[in-house]
Computed example of a mutant assay.
Amino acid sequence: MTAPAIIPVILSGGSGTRLWPMSTPARPKQFLPLVTDRTMFAETIARTQGQPGFAAPLVVCGPGHVEHALADLTAAGIAQARIIVEPAARNTAPAIALAAHAAGAGDTPILVMPSDHVMTDPAAFLAAIEAALPAVRAGALATFGIEPAGPETGYGYIQRGEPSAAALGTFAVARFVEKPPLDAAQAMLAAGGHYWNAGIFLMRADAYLAALAASAPAMAQACAAAMAGSAATGSTIHPDSAAFLASPSDSIDYAVMEKTPNVVVAPVDPGWSDVGSWTALHALAQHDAHGNAAQGNVLTIDTNGSLIRATAGVRIATLGVDNLIVIANAGPAGTDVLVIPMDRAQDIKRIVDQLGDA
């Protein structure tokens, strides 16, 4: 019997507030061409599109983002994709449960990927999937550990245990580590065997649903009821709203992975970034001789180490400044402009919170 193809599950519920003013609730960062000329959502789709052993994707998003997802899927020529429309945000564990049911709730593997990450070496990622697949087909839940480039405090970590007997190149998970302080991150890098937790998973649909039922039964029941009462309109699936709203909200890490014994980690170095800030985008972008990354109608004079972006209809000029983030985004309600020191990029949420309508 032919093994079932892997169904990519694209989670697209993020709001991307740390990339304001370009990323907004109406058009969050996954639907913006921030790194290439394609949106990050489209780049995520492309990682498995046309690859042997993969089926058409399942997308999970909110009602306000269906149009964006459909546009990117159409542009990619993917007619068989389905979109699950969440009635409300309930974090990743329920979203994946909806997808597991839509995948048939059987032994079909699902590859869960956030839609707003960057991978500059997708071939390395595909190789890690291939390495983890034997363990997954045997019933394990696999997570992908990113080889850390430094003692990053903004990511969780995965510590590997003994090599897995089920799949060469994978390891049992010794523990999951919350976002650590700097000294703890440095100690983990020095010790070795620790990876960034990218929130990417490969598992059989039935294995995930069984693990969810064991560790979070109320969530499992609510999601099953939501899909049992779902309605389909074309390529979109609408879970029953009342049933889904009864589900607790939790991440897959807390609800399942940290409570399930049969978990393996596949180490990989795919040139990964979650593009979680303008600083991260500056690091990924091409720089001029002065370390500036500029896009759009931008003039820089005596400017160094800065990220400057302007959308159509806006012009930005800088003179005599260093290490700034300057973003101008022209939208239907006017032009929003952000000016912030590079080392304060993580504070943008304070602006969004103050504005309220971003």
Rank of each mutant, 00 (worst) to 15 (best):
N292W: 05
L299N: 15
M1C: 15
G296E: 08
M1V: 15
M1A: 15
A243G: 03
P332K: 07
H101C: 06
E258T: 15
Q159P: 11
T36D: 10
A312Y: 10
T39E: 06
A242V: 10
A142S: 11
G192L: 02
D274T: 10
A218L: 15
A207R: 00
Q221R: 12
M119P: 04
T44S: 03
K259G: 02
R175N: 14
Q354E: 15
A231I: 13
V265H: 05
G356T: 08
E130P: 13
T24G: 11
G271C: 01
L324F: 14
G320P: 04
A93C: 04
D116S: 05
A89E: 11
P94W: 02
P180D: 00
R137F: 10
T311I: 06
L189T: 07
S15T: 14
G234L: 05
Q286M: 14
I325C: 05
Q49M: 08
L58F: 05
P87K: 01
G305R: 09
A310E: 01
L202I: 04
A328C: 08
P87C: 03
S249N: 11
I96F: 01
G313K: 00
A226I: 00
V268P: 01
T279W: 11
S235H: 12
A100I: 02
A76R: 06
A89I: 13
K179N: 05
S277F: 04
A123Q: 13
P180G: 02
S251A: 12
L168V: 15
G150T: 03
G77Y: 05
Y195K: 05
S215C: 11
R350Q: 15
E147K: 15
D107V: 10
A131C: 14
L189K: 09
S277I: 02
P33D: 04
M257Y: 11
E86F: 05
T120P: 06
